[in-house]
Amino acid sequence: MSAVNTTPGTPVSAGASPAPARRDAEATKTAILRAARHLLARHAHADITLKAVAERAGVSPPLVLKYFGNKDALFARVMSFEEDAAALLDAPVEDLGRHMVRHVVVGQRERGADPVLRIAFAPLHGDHGDILRANFRTQVTERLAARLGGPDARLRAELALATLIGLGVMFGIARGEELRALSVEEIVDRYGPTVQAQLGSWQGCSAPGRDG
């Protein structure tokens, strides 16, 4: 009996079991979302077509419609940071700086992008850029601030994320040669404490100009 083709976007034969079919569907959805994120990081939303997404994902345009309905529904999903934030912040607070750095660098090195860095391209997208910014604030910044607690939690979250995004831009966009020559753990060892320092408490001190 011939093997079942499980390439994303290729129909599975009628005799195949449901489990491989479900796995194939998830792989196809993942490929489509990855393609849409890649294009959104490089082009204005209005310039991206479903055909371009499908070609990038290696599937047919009807499959994009099957899984996401239309372009607006697809990009509503792409513009959400909910799942990305869950992975980015999945570590104890005392080790969060190192974890966040590792997450961004591994994403860049293994997948060529980190979804959180989409916020750097918000100015390209007009009204959709406003959606990206609002989602980033509520789903990433405020979620991180809630994890931190204490004085100036929101400010500390913003500073830590600014530090992290700067690393991602230098690694993945500016492609700093010396930085990219380091191993993941070397980058984590050198840069993790920098992010962690921004996450830390100011030990009750007020920010300049806030104590009247």
Rank of each mutant, 00 (worst) to 15 (best):
S2N: 11
S2A: 11
A3G: 12
A3D: 11
N5T: 04
T6K: 08
P8V: 04
G9P: 00
T10G: 04
T10R: 11
P11R: 01
V12F: 10
A14N: 10
A14D: 13
G15M: 06
G15D: 08
A16F: 07
P18I: 03
P18E: 07
P18V: 03
A21I: 06
A27F: 06
A27N: 09
A31K: 08
A31G: 09
A31I: 06
R34G: 06
A36M: 04
A36N: 04
L40M: 12
A41Q: 09
R42Q: 09
T49S: 14
T49N: 08
L50E: 08
L50T: 07
V53L: 03
V53P: 02
A54F: 05
R56A: 11
R56K: 12
G58M: 01
V59W: 12
L63Q: 14
V64R: 06
V64E: 06
L65Q: 07
K66A: 13
K66Y: 15
K66H: 14
Y67G: 05
F68H: 09
K71Y: 08
K71R: 13
L74G: 02
A76P: 09
A76C: 09
V78L: 11
V78H: 11
M79Y: 14
F81Y: 14
E83N: 04
E83D: 11
A86H: 13
A86W: 10
L89D: 07
L89T: 04
L89Q: 07
A91D: 05
A91Q: 07
P92N: 11
E94G: 13
M100D: 09
V101E: 00
R102D: 12
R102A: 14
G107F: 00
G107M: 01
E110S: 13
E110G: 12
R111V: 13
G112K: 08
G112F: 07
A113W: 12
P115M: 06
P115V: 02
V116F: 01
R118K: 02
A122I: 00
A122V: 00
L124K: 04
H128V: 01
D130T: 11
D130M: 12
L132E: 00
A134F: 08
N135M: 07
F136M: 01
Q139A: 12
V140Y: 10
V140G: 09
T141L: 12
T141W: 08
E142Y: 06
E142C: 03
L144R: 04
R147W: 00
L148K: 10
P151W: 12
R156S: 00
A157L: 03
A160T: 01
L161G: 06
T163C: 00
L167Q: 03
F171V: 11
F171R: 11
A174H: 14
R175D: 10
R175I: 08
R175M: 12
E177A: 15
E177P: 10
L182P: 02
S183D: 06
S183Y: 02
E185M: 04
E186V: 07
E186A: 10
R190D: 01
Y191M: 07
P193H: 01
Q196W: 10
G200A: 15
Q203H: 15
G204K: 15
S206W: 15
G209E: 03
R210V: 14
G212Y: 15
